[in-house]
Simulated assay, not measured.
Amino acid sequence: MKSSRIGRIPIPLNNVHVNAGDPFQVTGPLGVLTLTVPSVIKIKLYQTMIKVTPVFSNQRASAIQGTVRTLISNMVAGVTVGFRKVLVLNGVGFRVSIRNNILTLSLGYSHPIIYCVNRNIKLHLISPSELEVFGVDKQLVGQTSADIKRFHPIEPYKGKGIRFINETVNLKERTKKK
């Protein structure tokens, strides 16, 4: 059985400190991230790179090797440059404001929506209708963005709602009266 193609690629280390104990820990200029590595995976630490190898030669270990290698690569990228997602609010009167990591959204409902954000996530207002979600944990940034987007999904006829900045919206054509 071969090892995973992605799992075989070494992870370059630049400006990070790695502790290969249990749990696996990566420290960089933006923060610290930890990962519990499964027992079927062995991590080899070199001066300028990390290699992830399976202990056994079976399909399950190969699949986990690729997953763990990607998770560690995302950890290294997160503590060095971080991850960001930009959300755009489209609609008349759609606004967003931030105070003490509490997000207040005005989305055309009869009440404002209040959302408490995880302390590991930083929010920046680009404009009253654009919001940047930034953090070192890729999964947490994506989940927070998806939670905010879920408050008002894109409506397919007028395009109103919350979307990612690079997301394209295919508008439907209205039915015409005969």
Rank of each mutant, 00 (worst) to 15 (best):
I121L: 09
F83N: 03
R174S: 13
K85A: 09
A61S: 15
R99F: 15
Y157S: 02
G28M: 08
I64V: 14
H124G: 05
L30W: 05
P54D: 02
A20K: 08
K158V: 01
G91T: 01
T104A: 03
A20N: 15
L71H: 11
G135D: 02
S62D: 01
I72C: 02
I11L: 01
L125F: 09
I113S: 14
L171Q: 09
V81K: 15
K51S: 06
V37W: 02
V86H: 03
K138C: 07
T104I: 08
P112S: 07
T168R: 15
Q59H: 06
F24H: 05
S106A: 05
K2M: 07
S39W: 02
A77T: 05
S110V: 04
V52I: 14
G135S: 13
T36L: 10
I113V: 15
I102D: 06
A20G: 12
V16W: 03
T168Q: 14
Y115W: 13
H111E: 11
K42Y: 03
R150H: 13
I9M: 04
V68I: 15
E173R: 10
F164A: 05
S110R: 15
K178N: 15
L123E: 04
V96Y: 01
V26R: 05
V92E: 12
L171I: 04
G93T: 01
F94C: 08
D147W: 06
I102R: 14
Y115F: 15
V92R: 09
V37R: 00
T53F: 08
T104C: 05
K122H: 06
R99A: 12
K85D: 13
K138Y: 12
C116P: 13
V117G: 01
N118P: 02
H111A: 10
S106P: 00
N100C: 04
P12V: 02
V141I: 11
E155I: 03
Q25R: 15
S127E: 09
S106G: 00
I6P: 00
Q139G: 02
A63L: 11
K172C: 09
F56N: 06
V68C: 07
I43T: 01
S39R: 08
C116M: 07
P12Q: 10
D22T: 13
N90K: 14
S73R: 15
L103D: 07
V136L: 09
L103Q: 08
L103H: 10
K177F: 09
E155A: 06
L35M: 10
N15L: 12
G91R: 02
R174M: 13
M75I: 02
A63G: 01
H124L: 12
N15K: 15
A61E: 05
Y157C: 00
Q65S: 08
N90D: 14
S62A: 14
R95A: 09
L171G: 10
F24Q: 08
N90W: 02
T48S: 13
L123H: 06
Y157W: 10
F24Y: 13
Y46G: 06
I64W: 03
G135K: 01
Y115I: 15
P128N: 08
F24R: 11
M75S: 03
K44C: 06
L87A: 00
R84E: 13
P128F: 07
T144H: 07
I126H: 08
I41D: 04
